[in-house]
Nucleic acid binder design. Structure first.
Length: 493
RNA sequence: GCCCUCAUCGUCUAGAGGCCUAGGACGUCAGCCUUUCAAGCUGAAGAUCAGGGGUUCGAAUCCCCUUGGGGGCACCA
């Protein structure tokens, strides 16, 4: 009727059991992560089981995406993944046993009848449940239906009385009145088991010691307990994890947009940051530590510190954390990570292959400013573009009169033409004194140069940027920007 | 409708009877730094601990009720 004591002598074995009816999202992966952490912490096993018993809703490519997601995050599983579709014989054996021992029965009701019953129950504000129609069929009726070749399903004969309880490792003792439970279906008419049957049979046959799954399964746990009981099997320990919620506090779903975990990879998030952030959704070590390496998580993880309340996924904090992780990367690592994004996102006009040596010079200026890897191309594109999309408003954004700006750019160009050593320090030495000479504040003066050099008002430090760009490009940009200004002046007059 | 469950700043959370005039982080705002941005630093605003009853010398912490949220109630998982 119940379990609950910690059986420490039983080897730890957990499973991640996704169904390939969609791509794994944050919530699925958080469940995988907690299972993985639990297994690794206790030196147990973490297995992967694909619950592909819904032939109708199966999504092509979902299984591969599940594997890819886990690999990306470094959540390595033990052994080969199991597929329930390849284990049908096992479920059928158990069904035979349950049928023979009177714990289950065949149900011949049509979907139409079931729907009608449900409608009626709803109308009367009754809980929608199977009305036991086939539970009490006489032998004659049964063999008659059987002979007619009509399709049937197998239902569990849920006890009408009594209660079923179990001890959840996170929530404590939980009990349900059996009378409120349904005669749920074990085997569908297509011969595939339902989740309830398959998960119980597999968890037992795979010696799963702990089932860590999302909260949404809490209310079907008594059904599973009843099944274990009628099969005479020792149930595993259960721990129902708090759910990850959408911004509207409801269960994550397509309604909330993207969220396939692979999407975050595309969006330039680092797996380390993803893991770290996800671990903090529902688990915490103390009141201040928030950065954990994978090893530190494994070392410190425990179910005792998993909370009970659902958590809203906050992308802003993930992005902040990702930025911190990006800045912690070595320059070499960062460059390697950024390269595919540069190749993908830089305009087609930029020649490929990209110049590795040049990129290596650009990246230090970008790394400390990027919060995601997709930021990189956006932050760095002016380093690669031949023609900058200038506008007079941009060039004059530091509120300098057009004629003054043109004159200043001209002076700068002449000054730099003769500069022999092109590095940030030399550039600063020759340029900084020009501001007072031109009667401009450094703020305005450098602002003007910045827009001419980068085509934008915000950029990495001016002199370093110019050093990396090189003399030729810089002089060209000063010339081009003067041209734009003079054109607009002529138009006006 | 029925069953289960949850409840601390906008968000993630610390808090397991006195350390709490409730701590940290993201975000927000302000200041500093500064050629801009980012980063960094400093500071501020932000939670009558959902509400009401108990228990106790003492409750965010224990109990009860109420309210609110969430989940489940499929031949889906």
């Amino acid at each position: 009727m119940q379990s609950g004591k910690q059986e420490s002598d039983i080897p730890i074995k957990v499973r991640f059991a996704p169904s390939p009816t969609g791509y794994p999202h944050i919530g699925n992966i958080r469940t995988a992560l907690f299972n993985w952490l639990f297994a690794r912490h206790y030196g147990g096993r973490f297995i992967l089981r694909i619950e592909d018993t819904d032939t109708a809703r199966k999504v092509e490519g979902a299984t591969q995406t599940i594997l890819d997601s886990l690999i990306w995050l470094g959540l390595n599983w033990d052994g080969k993944p199991y597929f329930q579709s390849q284990r049908l014989h096992l479920y059928h054996e158990v069904i035979q046993r349950l049928l023979q021992e009177g714990h289950a029965y065949r149900c011949y009701c049509s979907r139409q009848r079931l729907e009608k019953v449900r409608q009626e129950q709803m109308r009367q504000k009754q809980p929608p449940r199977y009305d036991h129609h086939c539970r009490y069929l006489s032998d004659q009726e049964r063999s008659k239906l059987e002979a007619s070749g009509i399709n049937s399903v197998v239902r569990f004969k849920t006890p009408l009385e009594g209660e079923t309880s179990f001890c959840d490792l996170i929530r404590g003792q939980i009990s349900f009145q059996n009378g409120t439970l349904d005669d749920f279906i074990l085997l569908k008419s297509d011969g595939y088991p339902t989740y309830h049957l398959a998960n119980v049979v597999d968890d037992h046959s795979m010696n799963i010691s702990h089932v860590l799954r999302a909260d949404e399964w809490l209310s079907s746990t008594p059904k599973h307990m009843l099944l274990y009981q009628s099969l005479g099997w020792q149930p595993p320990q259960f721990a129902h994890l708090p759910m990850i919620l959408g911004p509207d506090k409801s269960k994550l779903s397509k309604r909330h947009g993207t969220t396939a975990i692979t999407e975050y990879k595309e969006q330039g998030y680092l797996p380390q940051a993803m893991i770290n952030y996800l671990a903090l959704l529902g688990w915490s070590l103390d009141d201040k530590t928030e950065f954990f390496s994978q090893e530190e998580l494994v070392k410190n993880f425990s179910l005792e510190r998993v909370g009970k309340a659902g958590a809203i996924f906050n992308k802003e904090k993930l992005t902040w954390m990702n930025g911190v992780y990006i800045r912690q990367l070595s320059l070499e690592e960062f460059t390697q990570q950024a390269l595919p994004f540069l190749n993908r996102d830089l305009p087609a006009s930029v020649k490929r292959p990209l110049d590795n040596n040049y990129i290596r010079q650009v990246m230090p200026l970008i790394q400390e400013r990027a919060r995601t890897l997709v930021d990189v191309s956006q932050l760095a594109d002016f380093f690669f573009l031949e023609e900058l999309p200038y506008s007079t408003t941009l060039l004059l954004s530091s509120k300098i009169e057009a004629s003054v700006a043109m004159h200043s750019l001209r002076i700068v160009q002449v000054t730099l033409q003769s500069l022999s050593t092109w590095d940030a320090a030399s550039l600063e030495i020759s340029l900084r004194p020009l501001a007072p000479e031109l009667g401009l504040s450094t703020r305005k003066f450098f602002g003007l140069l910045r827009s001419a050099i980068t085509g934008r008002t915000a950029s990495p430090p001016l002199f370093q940027t110019m050093e990396v760009l090189g003399k030729k490009r810089c002089l060209q940009r000063f010339a081009n920007s003067q041209k734009v200004l003079s054109n607009s002046l002529m138009e006006k007059s």
